[in-house]
């Protein structure tokens, strides 16, 4: 009896060991598969996404009272911020600028700030553009496209709407209409503003 039991025990042990080995190996391999698929689908992981805290940066402001000075994103903390990535040579960017300018005075009162980041090569063309459209919101110059890369901007224009807590609420690629722009503004207006 003892011998048979011993043999049975041995068999059971072997079986358990094999099951464990197979489970672990399959888990590792399917884990690697999952990792590869997710990595390839999420693409550039550095890109800022909805729900993320908007990262800080520093750029030269071209116009307005800070004209010619370096400003940081954190300076505007506590306000709802529309971060607009654009360039002078991009027609859809130019198309949405008048809407932004028309809503700006009203929403500035309510605590919303527009930061328009241009990737243009020379300041001259930005000044020409500001004069043409009478822009009064801060226009920042990202000559080396560092902030464009930091935020993972792939197409012109791209707008991020950031609430007073610094969280990205909405990312819009492509030009905005006046109505949609106002909807987004309302999402980021500070409550006590």
């Amino acid at each position: 009896m003892g011998k048979i039991e011993e043999a049975n025990n041995k068999k059971q042990k072997k079986k358990r060991k094999r099951l464990l080995f197979r489970s672990i190996l399959l888990a590792i391999m399917f884990g690697a598969l999952l990792f590869a698929v997710i990595s390839s689908l999420s693409g550039d992981s550095k890109q800022v996404e909805v729900g993320d805290q908007a990262p800080n940066f520093q750029l030269k402001q071209v116009n307005g009272e800070n004209g010619g000075q370096a400003v940081t994103f954190e300076q505007f903390k506590g306000k709802g911020i529309m971060l607009n990535f654009w360039a002078t040579w991009c027609p859809p960017c130019e198309a949405e600028m008048p809407y932004m300018q028309s809503l700006y005075p009203e929403y500035k009162e309510k605590g919303v700030e527009i930061l328009a980041v241009s990737s243009d090569d020379t300041e001259k063309v930005i000044h020409d553009f500001i004069d043409k459209h009478d822009l009064t919101f801060p226009v920042l110059h990202d000559k080396k496209e560092e902030v464009f890369n930091q935020y993972g901007v792939l197409s012109y224009p791209t707008s991020l709407f950031i609430n007073p807590e610094g969280e990205v609420v909405e990312i819009v690629e492509g030009p905005l209409t006046l109505e949609r722009l106002e909807e987004y503004f309302q999402q980021i207006v500070p409550e006590n503003g």
């Binding site: 190996l25 399959l26 391999m29 399917f30 690697a32 598969l33 590869a36 698929v37 390839s40």
Partner: peptide, 13 residues
């Protein structure tokens, strides 16, 4: 990618 990975799993097993 899944196809390639499944071939990999098949080879190992």
């Amino acid at each position: 990618m899944i196809l390639i990975a499944l071939i990999g799993i098949s080879i190992v097993v």
